[in-house]
Design a protein around this nucleic acid. Structure first.
Lengths: 339, 339
DNA sequence: ATCAAAGCGGCAAGCGTTTGCCAAAAGTTG
DNA sequence: CAACTTTTGGCAAACGCTTGCCGCTTTGAT
């Protein structure tokens, strides 16, 4: 695979080697390779051939140093462990690769501080940032957005373009589903206190419930992990509610397990609605009724918005907000209110 | 958060700004920051203070360019979608972050070509590579390993340090479990043909089964996704086997669903053993008996081995092979042979 | 007091690109 | 054919850092 010339020296060929072989200046090589219109076709072909024969790969470091662009974007997620972010990871990864960008994945461990720190440390390392479910304050986002390209996912803010998942809409659907099954005592099982989308969901839940004259309760906050499901289930059970809308599927799945242990049947005794439709929601027991959102697509859209921001052509004229539709996927975890 | 001086210019402070403020040469700043022993304590403190007050962040690009190190390592996985790799992703991510490295995540889409290509393109971008379940040939691995630091996971090769998951040992355990439940007709449900570990598992399965005088069958190859589970289940059911050892959990979970649809009860009519103990294996229906492996730890070990390789001190004396223990986790998907 | 060794800081040469500027060549127009 | 424009390629200066080398101070030993 590697050519002779390139391998004789242990060190990879540089633009100079290519220039020499092609009999042109390095500047011409540079242009031929990254700005094809700028050089004559035959020259370009000669350069390309030389580059190919040497198996030349431009150094992204050097390129970045002199051009100021790194061709990498960083994706900050609160927890790589959470399947919700898996979908974002692969959505962005896809789109980035297609655009010739490298993805820098960082786990911020649900910490605003760590998030801010990463943003600072990587200012030169990445051309832009995608903040998934950011824990940052509005002020912090504003500050960050003032010096670097940023897109947030599920964290609305006037200060940066955002991809939102229309959870309010979905909460309404869930509520409708539940009331149509006869439920009137419904509990919201809350996620992390610092989560913007948790706050949003809860608020919508409260408002919509009130309008419908439902009896609501609220438990939480809980860490959005299956392991917190036990505590969540116990707390929810105590409220006397016959149905729960749960912050996310992870928590909901954990609750499912606990409820079974305690002999509380789902959905006969208690209905459960999750949120996100993550991997596993379809094959847990019972399969989870959940608010499905096109998470992967959200990742892709976020990349597009970020890249548009980076592109000098579109600069400024970029879309500030994308709302991803959601819908309720009804599976086995919801049923008629117990008699 | 940002200091006045640093922000006045729109451009981030460089080592020169720090040097000026501290009243020393840039070389001293460089050393004070990355080679603390080399400068006097008071000088160092002065530099550190200057750097802090300017909110200085060294450019990894420039650093990489002049030092030849990037402080990034690339993780190549065949499919970011697969939960098996999630655990590797977070295992490596953890360990890398702890060591001050950045993780470059690349999805090679189960393609050897893409893998080789990435290895080539990123030669300068990453200090080392972790190849998870590599599809590369021995020769390709040899070639790559000759010019860059490489560690493979679940792909044994004499040419690069490897982290292996002891599946053979686990297959034996699974077989023992199954025979002790009375099963004698067992089917191996195969994964991708190009997967080294699939070959390995199958081989062990065959050998051990023969020794025990079992009747074996084999179906596959199947793509290791839940969606392939239907085909796999149908094929396995036709063999007349009463138990299956399945290439991985993803496939196994898919089979579970299909078998239920077809009215084949698990484990009453058919026992299923998966492999990997991925997220979801514990809460699917029925919960999956599976060969559990410390995947996340495997990722961490891989990082350690890679970092050791990179460290000039250890160079050469690094461990070539780590075998991660496995054990059978018995859950609800296996039971006595049908009467 | 003398001298070698160690400690410490500075100089300057890269590292591999990109890119603004310039000049030569080629093409166009009247 | 002159005058001008466009195309094309080269020169050289960055980009921000690391590091080999040198030389000045200290320090310690004799």
């Amino acid at each position: 695979m590697a050519d002779a010339k390139a391998r004789t020296a242990g060190t990879p060929p540089t633009i100079r080697d290519v220039a020499e072989l092609a009999g042109v200046a390095t500047s011409t090589v540079s242009r031929a390779l990254s700005n094809p219109g700028r050089v004559n076709r035959v020259t370009r072909e000669r350069v390309e051939q030389a580059a190919a024969s040497l198996n030349y790969v431009p150094s992204s470091q050097a390129r970045g140093l002199s051009s100021g662009r790194t061709n990498a974007i960083a994706l900050l997620v609160p927890d790589v462990t959470n399947p919700f972010y898996f979908d974002i990871i692969r959505g962005t990864q896809n789109q980035l690769k297609a655009a010739g960008y490298t993805q820098l994945l960082v786990d911020t461990e649900e910490s605003a501080e760590m998030e801010a720190d990463t943003l600072r440390k990587m200012q030169r390392t990445a051309d832009g940032f995608i903040l998934a479910a950011s824990r940052l304050t509005d002020a912090q986002i504003l500050e960050a957005a003032s010096t670097q390209a940023i897109v947030t996912i599920n964290r609305s803010s006037a200060n940066a373009p955002t991809v939102m998942i229309d959870t309010p809409g979905a909460v309404v659907q869930a509520l409708e589903h539940l009331t149509s099954l006869g439920h009137s005592k419904i509990c919201y099982v809350g996620g992390p206190a610092s989560s913007w989308s948790n706050a949003k969901r809860w608020k919508t839940f409260e408002e919509e419930s009130r309008e419908r004259g439902l009896t609501t309760s609220h438990v939480g906050p809980f860490t959005p992990k299956t392991t917190s499901g036990a505590a969540a289930a116990d707390a929810a059970a105590r409220t006397g509610a016959t149905a729960c809308i749960v912050f996310n599927d992870l928590l909901a799945i954990g609750m499912l397990q606990r409820l079974r242990e305690r002999g509380i049947r789902v959905p006969e005794d208690m209905s459960i609605v999750g949120c996100d439709d993550i991997f596993g929601a379809d094959f847990c027991n019972p399969p989870l009724t959940t608010i499905a959102s096109p998470i992967e697509q959200a990742g892709r859209v976020a990349v597009s918005m970020l890249l548009a921001q980076l592109d000098p052509l579109h600069a400024g004229s970029t879309r500030r907000l994308a709302v991803m539709p959601t819908h309720l996927t009804v599976r086995g975890s919801t049923g008629p209110v117990p008699a």
